[in-house]
Design a protein around this nucleic acid. Structure first.
Lengths: 204, 204
DNA sequence: CGAGCGATTGAACCAGGTCAAACGGGGTGG
DNA sequence: CCACCCCGTTTGACCTGGTTCAATCGCTCG
């Protein structure tokens, strides 16, 4: 559908220097597949890992500036499945193959920060978790309009360790107090753009 | 008490090449303090970070082989408070200051693994979480006796996102079925060494 | 001995899970 | 064009696992 978006195989093989775009829900790479590391230049990426029982389960997020799949430089294949949680854009990393110590250090610090974020996303009351998640999904630039394509309920539920029903109830609550407003003009895919009021969000 | 253990200040300043030992509960470094990165050679370290409200809250774990405080190489100070969750031993990292790309890559992969572990520690039923935590605290070597100094209830509660009361009930349950057995001969500090049956643990 | 603190246990409560029904919108086939 | 289906979402009613509050215990240290 999106002419820019392509499937994993060719892009992983070419490691072109052009950034690549993915739509909400699109697979970026499969666990165990081979490829190269990426850097998220826009959007949010979801990781899933194979649990002991073989089931894939939520394992983490990567956001603007984070690296994706650095483990291929060690193990030769991706440890997690990566999916676009919001429309997002990735660029090959490192741009040049010289040893990028500073980049790695930064990635390490970011990874730890991200881990702390995720712990926070799964702690506390249901409403607070959902609000934190929405906040995380808002575009980083403060000037940008506060609107976002919310991921499917199922994703939000797995990320916050709640059930879909509970997330739905929380979203309803947010709509009721005006913190969240559905926008007309839905695109062909199931995405539902919402206008978000940051103030009401943190208040809720 | 332990003659090997020393407080944070001197060791952070010296960055000696000798490994350092900490007892259960001992502070390793404070958030915001200056110092050098470490590598955990034995035991488990707990991180706490200042939340938005200024409160310190659980943010992660570092286990055997993980790096601690690499962010000082970027920011000049520690991002988290680090505390010894079990008796543990740290060594300065890197041993030599040449660019250790492989080490950094490994650290990155480990950090992601750790993040996934922690997500797992805070998901699912209370009993399962407590069991997973205990398993994580067991010494890594398969040959070693399956015993461990359990951290204070308060720590276990914060790590698993449960209450102290619930953790206590779960531990009582594990003792009842013989998966956990308190050992006599308690040391001076509050530590309670326990014998653990891995089989019964995973069964519970 | 008594103070203090963590751990344990009990009882009541409630936030969120579970189950089930209904809704809505997009796609498909007639 | 409409009928139908599919699937994600919404909403309600009920249930329960874990929290909360509180009382007690046990150990350590003054």
């Amino acid at each position: 559908m999106n002419p820019i978006a392509v499937t994993h195989e060719p892009l992983a093989a070419t490691a072109t220097s052009a950034p690549l775009c993915f739509e909400r829900g699109q697979r970026i790479h499969e666990a165990g597949a081979m490829g190269f590391p990426w850097r998220v230049s826009r959007g949010v990426v979801r990781f899933d890992t194979a649990a002991v029982d073989g089931e894939l389960s939520f394992a983490g997020l990567a956001m603007e500036g984070d690296l994706v799949g650095t483990e291929v430089l060690m193990f030769g294949h991706f440890a997690h499945r990566a999916t676009a949680l919001t429309p997002c854009q990735l660029e090959p990393w490192p741009g040049r193959l010289d040893q990028d110590r500073a980049g790695l250090l930064q990635a390490l610090a970011r990874a730890e920060q991200r881990a702390a974020d995720i712990v926070a996303l799964r702690s506390g009351q249901a409403m607070a978790r959902v609000c934190r998640l929405i906040e995380l999904l808002l575009p980083r630039s403060a000037t940008a309009p506060q609107r976002t394509d919310l991921p499917p309920l199922r994703d939000m539920a797995e990320i916050t360790a709640l059930t879909g029903e509970t997330v739905s109830r929380m979203l309803s609550g947010l709509r009721r107090i005006g913190a969240l407003e559905p926008e007309r003009e839905r695109r062909g895919n199931g995405s539902k753009t919402c206008r978000v009021s940051r103030e009401l969000l943190v208040a809720a």
